[in-house]
């Protein structure tokens, strides 16, 4: 019975992925056929040759999300320390909720004028900057619990043992923060990867990320390319989830702080 339940659960979880993969290999799927009339690697080979633009979107999205998550993780880790030990810590942390209270798109609309004036409107740099506006506050909130009295005591201990700030970061703070930094990086990558509204608003359709492409194909009713784009869209998060399970569980249990 348990085996059957497992199989049913597995089928339910895997069905959307398998279905999308199958659809990306299909052609001529008209009513009342249950499955596409022909199977082809045409869409995938077009991806490889760069014909449908999906390959370029994939590379663009990977580069954008990687840059956003690296920058936002680094800046929010550094900034969260300043905030955590600041006398007005609570005020700063409340302010970090702003992009989420208003919704990222509304934030983008409020900042649109500044993006136009600064020449970042419709540019990759603009989208990257806009995404930092929502990912850095997330990172600040995420790391706020990391900086506690115990962590401060550890840092001070390094100083009294003769270490400077750089040594405190390199030898104690960063190694003990490794699981938190990796988790934050993964989460920020996913936020950036699936970001639609803000990217559309600031990129004005000129920065074609994979998420935007999926919606574009869906609105065009191009189900085969939409399926292909969806498969590409889901791959990096699946790899990240696998890495998360494989490495982060181990790190989290390693660094129990006695």
């Amino acid at each position: 019975m348990r085996r059957l339940q497992r199989i049913i659960l597995l089928v339910l979880v895997l069905f959307p992925f398998v279905f999308m993969l199958g659809l990306s290999l299909g052609r001529d799927w008209g009513y009342p056929r249950l499955i596409p009339a022909t199977w082809t690697l045409e869409h995938w080979s077009s991806l490889m040759s760069g014909g449908n633009g999906l390959g370029a979107s994939l590379i663009l999205s990977l580069g954008l999300s990687f840059s956003v998550s690296v920058l936002a993780t680094g800046l929010s880790f550094w900034g969260s320390r300043l905030v955590a030990y600041h006398p007005r810590r609570n005020l700063f942390l409340r302010a970090a909720y702003f992009p989420y209270v208003f919704a990222p798109v509304i934030l983008g609309a409020c900042l649109q004028y500044f993006f136009i004036v600064s020449g970042l409107y419709g540019k990759l740099g603009g989208v990257l900057t806009a995404q930092l506006f929502i990912t850095i506050p997330y990172g600040l909130l995420y790391f706020s619990s990391f900086w506690n009295t115990r962590r401060k005591a550890m840092e001070e201990l390094v100083y009294t043992l003769g270490g400077n700030t750089w040594q405190a970061y390199r030898k104690v703070l960063l190694p003990t923060a490794r699981p938190a930094i990796l988790t934050c990086f993964f989460q920020l990558f996913l936020i950036s990867w699936f970001e639609y509204g803000l990217t559309q608003l600031i990129g004005v359709g000129k920065v074609d990320t994979l998420t935007l492409q999926v919606f574009q194909y869906v609105t065009e009713s191009n189900i085969f390319l939409a399926a292909l784009a969806s498969v590409l869209l889901i791959l990096p998060p699946v790899i990240l989830l696998w890495l998360n399970k494989r490495y982060l569980f181990r790190l989290n249990t390693e660094y129990t702080t006695p």
């Binding site: 005591a153 009294t160 030898k171 003990t176 006695p258």
Partner: peptide, 29 residues
């Protein structure tokens, strides 16, 4: 600065660095 004084402050908790072994903790300074 604390680094220059050569005065070590020990807390109520041992505050061992969790990612280092006993040997590495002792040799840290």
């Amino acid at each position: 600065s604390p680094q220059k004084r050569g005065i070590v402050y020990l807390y109520q908790e041992p505050l061992l660095f969790p990612h280092l072994t006993v040997r590495e903790n002792i040799g840290f300074g």
